[in-house]
Amino acid sequence: MSSAPPAPDDRRFVLTLGCPDRPGIIARITSFIAEFGGSIVEAGYHSVPGASGQEVAARVGQGAPQSGTAADTGWFFTRQAIKASTVPFGIAELRDRFAGVAADFGPETEWQLLDSGERRRAVLLVSKDGHCLHDLLGRATSGELPATIEAVIGNHPDLAGMTEAHGVKFHHVPFPKDPAERGPAFDEVRALVDAHDPHAVVLARFMQVLPAELCEHWAGKAINIHHSFLPSFVGARPYHQAFARGVKLIGATCHYVTAELDAGPIIEQDVIRIDHADEVRDMVRLGRDIERVVLARGLRWHLEGRVLVHGRRTVVFS
C-alpha cells in the first residue's frame, strides 16, 4: 500500500549531519549548496555542549582519556531540505560532491542525503492489538504516511483480515510458548522483513522481545511503541503498574529498539491525564489514543529523516 509521490515542485533532497562541533560548519554547508544554486527551504541546527573542565577531570580521575574526544568538544547537528528542482544534477552526484565536504568535518562525521521523491518502505510487526495497525494503514491509504506498507507480519492470525482489507500482504508466523524455542520463528520473521529491504521495521504492539542479534541487524530502523511514558513502567503490563502506583498521567513512547528492553533512543512521547476514578480498562482505552498518535509521529519523523541519533539520545527536527 502506498500513497502518491510528492508533486515535482514539492520534492526535496534532505541532508542530515552530525559531527564534532567547531566554527564554520554552517557556512561551509550553505556555501556548498549555494555554489550550484540550490535553494534551502527548511533548515534546523542544534549543538550539544562539550564536557566541562570538572567533568573531564572527573573522568580522567576514573581512568578515562583526557580532553580531545567528541564528548569534550561538543557535537553539532543539522537538517537541510533543498528544493530538488534547484539542483542541476541527481541525488547520486549530490552525494558524491558532498562527501568531500563531510570529510572536512572529521572521521566521526555521520551524514546522509535522502530524496523525498523516493518512496520509503515499512514493514509492520503485530500481535493481537490492532489499534496502531489500523491507524497506520489508514494514514498510508490517505497519503499521510510517507511510505509504502510492504507487509504485515503477526505472531497471531487475528489481524489478517484488517490488513488484507487494505490490500497489504499478511504473514502469520506462529511463536512457541517457550521463549527458548522461538529462534526459528524469529529467523522466519527476519527473512520476511529483509525481503522488502525496509527503511522502517515497526513493532506496532508486537508483543515479543526481539533477540539481541536482530536488534543489531535492524539497528536504527526498528521502531517500537511502548504503552508507557518511559523510563517509567518498562516491560509488560505498564497500565497495571501505573494503576498500582496511582499515577495521574499515563503516556506512550516511540523509541528505537535496542537489546536493552525499552531503553532505546526516544523519538517521541506524549501523555494524557487520568484520575482516581479510572480503572485499568479505562487507562488502556485512553492510552490507545496516545499510542496511535505517538507512533505515527515518530514513524513519520524517522521516514522524513528528521531523527538523528547520538548515543542514547536523539535530536528530532520536527
Rank of each mutant, 00 (worst) to 15 (best):
G100A: 09
L192A: 06
R59A: 12
V189L: 09
G154H: 02
A81Q: 11
D21W: 00
P107R: 12
L145T: 09
F170L: 05
W301G: 13
H217F: 07
F36K: 15
A204D: 09
V168Q: 06
A7S: 06
F32E: 12
S47N: 14
D289P: 01
R306C: 12
Y45Q: 15
R79L: 07
F175Y: 03
W218A: 04
D96P: 06
E268F: 00
G90P: 08
F98V: 14
V293G: 03
A195C: 04
N155E: 02
G90H: 05
V168C: 10
V271I: 11
I33R: 10
G264M: 01
D104K: 14
R190E: 08
A34H: 05
I25D: 12
D158L: 03
E216N: 10
L210F: 08
S318V: 10
R182A: 11
I29P: 09
G298D: 05
R245A: 13
I223V: 14
A43C: 13
P211D: 07
S67V: 09
I225F: 00
R79A: 05
G167V: 12
G264V: 02
V152T: 02
G18M: 09
C132T: 11
V201T: 08
V284T: 09
W218C: 09
I91E: 10
Q112E: 11
P65D: 13
E150V: 08
G183W: 00
K221G: 11
R22W: 00
A122T: 14
D72S: 14
E93D: 14
H217M: 10
V201L: 14
V189M: 10
G220A: 06
T148E: 13
E268A: 12
H196G: 03
M283I: 04
L113A: 06
Q80T: 15
A103H: 04
G37E: 06
A64M: 03
F32T: 15
V309F: 00
R79W: 00
V41W: 01
H217L: 14
G50P: 05
E35R: 15
R205F: 00
H276D: 04
L230C: 09
P265R: 03
R205H: 04
S228I: 07
R312H: 04
R120H: 05
S142Q: 15
S228G: 12
R97W: 01
A259C: 06
D262V: 11
D187K: 08
Q241D: 09
